[in-house]
Design a binder for these strands. Structure first.
Ligand code: DGT
Ligand code: MG
Ligand code: MG
Ligand code: ZN
Length: 590
DNA sequence: GCCGTTTTCGGCCCGACTGTTTTCAGTCG
């Protein structure tokens, strides 16, 4: 784990302890936000502490700065340790239980000396908690359910796993009689690499039809538990343990509802704060004049009884706030609202900007389709060019090519290219970066290719120095154009190489080597944090699928999402260049 | 705890659902 994530965990725990102690709730909010900022930040915290620039980060004040500084210097935080000693670990763990919050947990602890899930279960079963004020049969039954179902978030899942499930649910939802439209919202619409739960928005013509939808939703096949069900929203858990939240609103509130439910939470808070400053108030029903809204009496689950300033589309709401449309992938409270206000939102890369895929495999190594089939799929995808980059000889399991086979393969690619229309093929290879940074082909072999992707595939547990030197050596090779999946990390799996990223970025930018955003799930490597840092450091990126079949070319949407979430513009992406420009880039290095 | 065309104290987003509440607190989105 990195320093940033260590610190993020510390601040998240401090936030929980603040809540448990009944401190001003804004303390918990503040610490939780700092936790998120640190987790999201590519910033070298150690460097920032040395430079004394930690306090410059918006949201980190005097107090948190001192905690960070002590931790960076000594590897410990006395304040954090003192706070931890004041709360038994079992009490903190109880916060993970569905339906249990800091108020209730603190009361169980203080009033009944309950400090673990086991003790709580025993106390529920012997009926001894029923005499607590505000605690009744139903509440205890719900907590019991939560305890048995274990953790609140049964862990986050990779987007690649969740997306098909969400789409199937969406199809079902659209078949429910009064549903006019249904969309994915939440982290899935923002294309976050991991998903806590699925959020779906359904629209109906009239308010009165909404309860029909929530009733149908909780009856969907595969529903394991119903966490809650009201007239306008419902939450279920399906067999796999995945939670699905549904929100239902009348169509004329679609834009406001989608904006609300897309989030992120912190983005919403930021936009709503801006609305406030402009004398307006924003919720899932619409954007309203604040004074008029205050005079009106709003009933739960019903539209406010006044005309909204905007509500039908997200565009209208942003516009009424004086903002350009903010792409869902940017809505993470990473400076996008401020940038929108100042008119300096980036024009992030879009699918239509991509002119080719520069990392694909064929039956020559471990792919499932021939060169021609891959070429045809690329042409159908609207691409101008496609690089065929099969594995090198060390990848014996993947039927990697030796120099002789590679030469024949390249010849076949070029021959086919001569007769194909509407797509240009580049003869390349994905050459292994061996554990010491040497490549799996001689330079003379690489020199014969149009494009070279160099990737680490094994020995992915090296220490930072060794791993960084390994990649630097590959970057310095005059024939290497792209470093493929630079870290080797897998979502929900191995961490990958612990690279000194700033050093990698400097070398990549200086040598004219692109770094890949590998789209294949569960790689997504570089990830969004490093992609953003790379682009800011002047590195060029390549968004590739690493497709092992024609169908996998479609997975480009995942890599594209990483790039978009990283604020990457087309100018930073080599496969947004027209073929001539790309060829010039490839040639320049040699 | 953090922050400042509201400036160094006072405000911090806003609403739905649940349970035990006779007027709202807690939890969650
Ligand atoms: N205004 C506002 N909106 C919220 C709040 N909490 C959640 N939302 C909105 C924005 C979220 O993206 C959306 C869905 O909530 P989730 O808890 O499912 O979060 P999200 O999907 O963003 O992340 P996840 O991957 O599920 O953890 O609901 C809140 O406190 N205030
Ligand atoms: Mg969600
Ligand atoms: Mg949710
Ligand atoms: Zn590959």
């Amino acid at each position: 784990m990195s320093l940033n994530t260590d610190l993020a965990d510390i601040f998240a725990t401090i936030a929980d302890i603040m809540d448990l102690r009944g401190e001003n709730p804004f303390k918990g909010i503040t610490y939780r936000k700092i936790s998120r900022i640190l987790r999201d930040s590519p910033l070298d915290i150690r460097q920032a502490v040395e430079n004394g620039t930690i306090g410059d980060i918006e949201g980190i004040g005097e107090h948190s700065r001192s905690i960070i500084e002590e931790y960076v210097r000594t590897g410990r935080s006395t304040e954090y340790e003192t706070l931890c000693r004041s709360v038994p670990a079992g009490v903190l763990a109880l916060l993970e239980v569905e339906g249990l919050g800091p108020k209730t947990v603190a009361r169980f602890w203080k009033e009944r000396n309950i400090t673990s899930a086991d003790q709580l279960l025993t106390a529920i079963d012997d009926g001894s908690l029923l005499d607590m004020k505000g605690i009744g049969q139903k509440k205890l039954a719900a907590i019991r359910q939560g305890l048995l179902a274990r953790a609140k978030t049964a862990g986050r899942r990779g987007i690649g796993e969740v997306l098909p499930v969400a789409q199937e649910l969406l199809r079902r939802l659209r078949r429910v009689e009064p549903v006019r439209s249904a969309e994915v919202a939440g982290s899935l619409r923002r294309m976050k690499e991991t998903i806590g739960d699925v959020d779906l928005l359904a629209c109906v013509a009239e308010e009165t039809e909404a309860p029909v939808v929530t009733r149908a939703f909780v009856e969907f096949p595969g529903v394991e538990r119903v966490l809650g069900q009201g007239d306008t929203k419902a939450s279920i858990v399906v067999g796999s343990g995945l939670q699905i939240d549904l929100r239902v609103l009348p169509e004329r509130h679609f834009g406001a509802a989608l904006m609300y439910f897309t989030g992120s939470k912190d983005h919403n808070v930021r936009v709503r704060g801006l609305a406030q400053k402009k004398g307006m108030t924003l919720n899932e029903w619409g954007l309203y004049d604040a004074a008029e809204y205050a005079r009106a009496t709003k009933k739960t689950g019903a539209a406010p009884p006044i005309e909204p300033l905007a509500s039908r589309t997200e565009h209208e709401i942003f516009a009424r706030l004086g903002l350009p449309f903010i792409e869902p992938e940017l809505r993470e409270d990473r400076g996008e609202v401020e940038a929108a206000v100042e008119g300096r939102l980036p024009r992030i890369v879009a699918r239509a900007d991509l002119r080719g895929d520069l990392h694909t495999h064929t039956t020559a190594s471990d792919g499932q389709n021939t060169i021609e089939e891959m070429a045809e799929a690329a042409r159908a995808a609207g691409y101008e060019y496609l690089a065929i980059t099969d594995h090198s000889k060390s990848q014996t399991i993947a039927n990697g090519l030796d120099a002789r086979r590679l030469a024949k393969h390249a010849e076949a690619i070029r021959k086919l290219n001569d007769r194909l229309r509407g797509i240009t093929l580049l003869a390349g290879a994905e050459v292994d970066i061996l554990s010491d940074g040497r490549l799996d082909y001689e330079d003379a072999v690489l020199a014969e290719l149009d494009i070279v992707v160099a990737s680490p595939h094994f020995a992915l547990k090296q220490e930072q120095r060794k791993a960084t030197d390994r990649l630097l050596r590959a970057i310095e090779n005059p024939y290497v154009n792209i470093i493929g999946h630079p870290t080797g990390r897998l979502i929900g799996g191995r961490e990958g190489l612990p690279l000194d990223m700033p050093a990698i970025f400097r070398a990549a930018a200086a040598s004219g080597t692109a770094l890949e955003i590998n789209s294949s799930y569960p790689r997504l490597d570089l990830d969004e944090v490093n992609s953003r840092a790379a682009a800011e450091a002047g590195v060029l990126l390549a968004i590739n699928t690493d497709a092992h079949s024609a169908g996998e070319l479609e997975a480009i949407s995942f890599g594209l999402a990483v790039a978009r979430r990283a604020w990457v513009t087309p100018a930073r992406v080599i496969n947004c260049m027209p073929l001539a420009g790309l060829r010039a880039f490839l040639k320049k290095k040699k």
